[in-house]
Nucleic acid binder design. Structure first.
Length: 437
RNA sequence: GACCCCUUCGUCUAGCGGUUAGGACACAUCCCUUUCACGGAUGCGACACGAGUUCGAUUCUCGUAGGGGUCGCCA
């Protein structure tokens, strides 16, 4: 039975690197019917807060990385907060003491005596990596105040929680021999390691907090990304599935996942490509799903949605024009209000020719006489009005678009008119004639 | 400084001794088109360097350079 874990320290917003580490663990567990565990490594009490932990949980939930054991999920190997496992660590320390593998310094810190033998890490990604007998000072595993250090609790918990595999960032590779030394001291078999490459900034520097695109909530949730798109992009940063396409669902990625295909070279983060994935998923959504996703961003911009069906159609009509949900309000705001501003180039266009007002009145006249108000009938009416005025529909469309939306770009003109309805369409034309032309 | 990992278009990558070195993003041009987009087509663009092994190296080995990481009483 495969058991893997994601073991973050609660530092606030989930970092993309951490998110991807969690993602690979999750992928491996789901692919093999294993168990995915969330363990909070909060041994450094000074800087770990409950609020910081909420950020981690929120980020994981948003990415859809559900855990089988851990905070809120429970499980037979808890507690899943290291700050609550002191008795277990004390017991393990006692074993080391009994075996003469530790010693206490004058100030009370406890150190683990390295075996000082060559140690080989068998890594799924990096292959066998052998470290020569170390010359480093013995490692501190307990502070004078009785709290324990990462390397120790990490190993103890991996033993206690029966981890079979450990997927973690490559920044841990250089320390892994210390962990194996500890596993050996406890007579335990180390898990199989897989050190995944790091995510770098576009300039090649290490990506850390504050760098663009580094925080799940701040850079993705709030910026209008879709979880599936970020999931897809992150999975393919350092791993290439054997598929003939790049846009893949969560289920497909689970099916395709193979840790031996994970690259060993670091990858630079490309926000452009991440947005491209987002655009792909956006376009594949149904009108209803798209509205659900866009609603908070629309409401935060003050748009009042009174009619869900109309709103869904409006949002759907601009879906291939945006790549982020945050861009949607600017493309659809006029569907939800009649006091939209006329952009500068739009009013210039309307004022440019004196005959424009006559053309708009002519269209309004035809609209007023229509028996039914469908997208097709509206479209036919516009063509009829153009014919009556001896101009091409292509000359009339931009004017109507300007009047109905205040913008020079957007979905089809007949789509706009149809969705806002006949009454609103006529009011909009009147307003444009009164205020602009 | 020591040790570890890494090195194909600007970016993500395919390649696992013989290829016109393929794809995606980005960029450029064209087509489509009532706008903005989408879509389609085309173009631009890479094997870090030096030895060696080999009939033949992007591919194997070694070295150099460059990038990243670790060496905490942080995780």
């Amino acid at each position: 039975m495969i058991r893997v874990r994601f073991a973050p320290s609660p530092t606030g917003d989930l970092h993309v690197g951490g998110g991807r580490t969690a993602l690979f663990n999750w992928l491996f567990a789901r692919k093999n019917g294993g168990t995915f565990i969330l363990r909070i490594e909060d041994t450094d009490g000074a800087r770990n807060t409950e609020e910081a932990q909420r950020g981690i949980v929120k980020g994981l939930r948003w990415l859809g990385l559900d855990w089988d054991e851990g905070p809120e999920a429970g499980g037979p190997h808890g507690p899943y907060f290291q700050s609550q496992r002191k008795a277990i660590y004390d017991a393990y320390l006692a074993r080391l003491e009994a075996d003469g593998r530790v010693y206490t310094e004058e100030n009370g810190a406890v150190r683990f005596k390295f075996s000082r033998t060559a140690i080989t890490v068998h890594d799924l990604v990096c292959g066998d990596v052998t470290f020569a007998p170390t010359e480093e000072p013995d490692m501190t595993i307990r502070r004078p105040d009785g709290s324990y250090i990462f390397h120790f609790v990490n190993v103890v918990d991996d033993i206690e929680m029966k981890m079979t595999h450990v997927f973690r960032g490559e920044d841990h590779l250089s320390n892994t021999w210390k962990h194996i030394d500890l596993f050996n001291a406890f007579g335990a078999t180390p898990p199989t390691y897989a050190h995944i490459p790091l995510i770098l900034n576009p300039d090649g520097s290490k990506m850390s907090k504050r760098d663009a695109g580094s925080a799940i909530e701040h850079s993705y949730i709030n910026e209008g990304f879709l979880p599936d798109a970020v999931f897809n992009y992150l999975a393919m940063l350092g791993w290439t599935p054997r598929a003939d396409k790049e846009v893949l669902t969560r289920q497909e990625l689970v099916q395709l996942f193979d840790p031996s295909e994970i690259h060993s070279a670091n990858a630079r983060f490309d926000m452009h490509k991440c947005q491209w994935f987002n655009a792909q998923f956006l376009r594949a959504m149904t009108p209803e799903a798209l509205l659900d996703a866009a609603r908070p961003f629309m409401e935060s911009q003050g748009l009042v949605i009174a009619d869900d069906a109309m709103a869904a159609a409006a949002v759907f009509s601009v879906k291939e024009k945006v790549s982020l949900l945050t861009e949607i309000p600017a493309w659809v705001h006029y569907f939800f209000r009649e006091d939209y501003p006329f952009e500068a180039d739009v009013s210039d266009k309307l004022k440019a020719k004196p005959e424009n007002s006559g053309l708009l009145r002519a269209v309004a006249g035809v609209f007023a006489g229509l028996k039914e108000w469908t997208e097709a009938s509206v479209h036919a009416a516009i063509e009829e009005a153009a014919k009556g005025a001896s101009v091409k529909p292509g000359a009339l469309m931009p004017l109507l678009r300007a009047a109905l939306s205040g913008q020079s770009r957007g979905p089809g003109v007949s789509t706009i008119a149809h969705l806002v309805g006949r009454e609103s369409t006529l009011r909009r034309i009147d307003r444009a004639l009164a205020e602009v032309c």
